[in-house]
């Protein structure tokens, strides 16, 4: 195979767009409440039995995956202890889900989260699950804690839709964040007081989407059974890892290093400009648990 030569186009692309470029932000002052240690932890848990069929998760397996991932993330003895580090019984908790018709967060993931919130002692009336209605939802309007959960998928305008982007529904006019391929999505976390309130980011990798076609940006052909769940306190770190997995899948599927149709530069900019979290892989502690076949990272 011929040696890959870095051209000025490649250089500009890498310097401007890749999470690797987050290295330049090393040492930058971070937002209050963000990740002052300079390193972020991401836990990826995969289970071969996560799906009973294509895009249909097994609820019990999903509960175990989430429990193992959160427990490891927070280094606690069990899932309830871990969740008590995230929320208290007096919290009002919004589970920010994603209802995209073809690839939702899934009720199984939503219910696995809700079950642990109930175990912590949060009253059911103080738990809300919503996506497009969060601005009108009374629970979200009063929420003291938010659990951010959505699937990973390529996105026509922002490169990928991940945990950073999932909070776009808190914005009255989402298109205000669309310029320059959604470069400044991270700014909405500060503008809408979401940084400290978001206690956990869950990037659902059960069936990630790695390529986008058509007005609905979706085709089953470009979704695969990865059977994973990733969790982190840091939305940027979990998205950066998700992006690397999707890029690896694209290389595997297309047989070449096919760049993302739209570069997901908002992840790198969330780090270097908005200080929302860490995008540099060298500063992400990735813990991989469970099934390893086809892990791609």
């Amino acid at each position: 195979m011929a040696k890959k030569v870095i051209t000025r186009r490649d250089f500009i692309r890498v310097a401007a767009l890749s999470p690797l470029a987050g290295a330049v932000a090393h040492g930058m002052k971070r937002m209050k409440g963000a990740f002052s240690s300079g390193q972020s932890r991401v836990v990826l848990f995969r289970d071969e039995k996560a799906l009973v069929s294509f895009k249909k998760p097994d609820p019990e397996v999903v509960q175990n995956m989430l429990d193992e991932a959160v427990t490891t993330l927070l280094e606690e003895k069990g899932p309830v202890e871990a969740w008590k580090r995230l929320v208290t019984s007096s919290d009002i908790v919004g589970i920010k889900t994603n209802v995209m018709h073809y690839l939702p967060t899934t009720p199984e993931v939503e219910q696995a989260i809700k079950r642990r919130l109930l175990d912590v002692g949060v009253p059911e009336k103080n738990i809300g699950i919503d996506d497009r209605g969060v601005r009108r939802n009374p629970v979200f309007q009063r929420a003291t804690a938010i659990i951010n959960a959505r699937p990973a998928r390529t996105h026509h305008w922002s490169g990928i839709g991940g945990c950073i982007k999932n909070h776009i529904m808190f914005v009255p006019r989402a298109s205000a964040y669309h310029p320059d391929s959604c470069a400044d999505l991270a700014a909405l976390w500060k503008e809408f007081n979401l940084i400290d309130r978001t206690k956990l980011n869950i990037l659902v990798m059960l069936n990630p989407q790695f390529h986008t076609v058509g007005p609905h940006s979706y085709n089953d052909k470009y979704v695969w059974n990865y059977k994973g769940i990733m969790v982190s306190r840091d939305p940027v770190a979990v998205d950066a890892v998700g992006l690397m997995i999707i890029e690896a899948k694209r290389r595997e599927y297309f047989g070449e290093d096919l760049p993302m149709q739209t570069p997901a530069k908002h992840i790198r900019i969330a780090d270097t400009k908005h200080n929302l979290g860490v995008s540099d892989p060298s500063r992400i502690e990735l813990i991989k648990l469970g099934w390893k076949e086809g892990i791609l990272i």
């Binding site: 996105h155 026509h156 305008w157 839709g161 989402a174 298109s175 669309h178 007005p215 609905h216 940006s217």
Partner: peptide, 15 residues
């Protein structure tokens, strides 16, 4: 052009 995002999210920017 203002309401398309209710239907197809950010992909509406292409149109």
């Amino acid at each position: 052009p203002d309401t398309i995002f209710d239907y197809i999210d950010g992909a509406g920017e292409v149109y």
